[in-house]
Each structure stands twice: as C-alpha cells, then as structure tokens.
C-alpha cells in the first residue's frame, strides 16, 4: 500500500478500514509520553535479558555485546525494567 496523506479523503479510505501495514503502529512515537527514561549501567548488567522480557512496549533490544538499551522513540518510561532489574543496572532519570 502506497503512503497516503493523512487524514485521508473518503475515496482513499481502505475498503472496510482494513489495515494492510503490519506493525505500522511504529509510525506513532509513544516516547513523547515519557517523564522518566531508563539508563543502563553496563558495569552492573549481567546480560540476563529480564528488562527485555518484561517491557510492555517491546522496545528494549540487545546490542552486539549482549547489553540492553531502550528505543526512546517508544519507551513510555513506565519503569518496569528498572524495577525488575535485580542487579540494579537500570536507573530511571527524569526527562529534561
């Protein structure tokens, strides 16, 4: 499906409002909702991946060295990762 301007005209609305672009929610950046952001201290990180597993946004990913970081375009700053990181490698810090 070609990109269309938004909002669409009635002629451009997909039949039945079918959405043909899987995962297109990523167009919208929920990162703007965030009041606090998670900061990883890799010296404490044991690379267990708990933060990745528990993230409701699925926005935490592993880098080449096995450490983790959140995609701040989507991180809503819920703080679950920091709370669940038992080695204490993640801290929540206020957004500017």
């Amino acid at each position: 499906m070609a990109e269309k301007k938004w909002p669409e005209t009635w002629q451009e609305v997909n039949p039945g409002c079918i959405v043909f672009r899987p995962g297109s929610s990523r167009d919208y950046h929920t990162g703007t909702w965030r009041a606090e952001r998670p900061i990883w201290d890799n010296s404490k990180c044991i690379k267990c991946g708990i933060c990745y597993l528990f993230c409701p946004e699925g926005c935490i990913s592993e880098d080449e060295e096995g450490y983790f970081a959140a995609d701040l375009n989507y991180c809503k700053g819920c703080g679950i990762c920091a709370h669940e990181c038992w080695p204490g490698a993640i801290k929540m810090v206020g957004e500017e």
Partner: peptide
C-alpha cells in the same frame, strides 16, 4: 508480533 507504538498505558500488564 505486537509492535511498539501501541497506545497502552505506561506499565500495562496486558500489553506485556
């Protein structure tokens, strides 16, 4: 399979 950018509340257990 459930992509980021969804509008669930912060810390939503259901989305997780």
């Amino acid at each position: 399979y459930f992509a980021a950018g969804h509008r669930a509340c912060q810390g939503c257990g259901e989305a997780l």
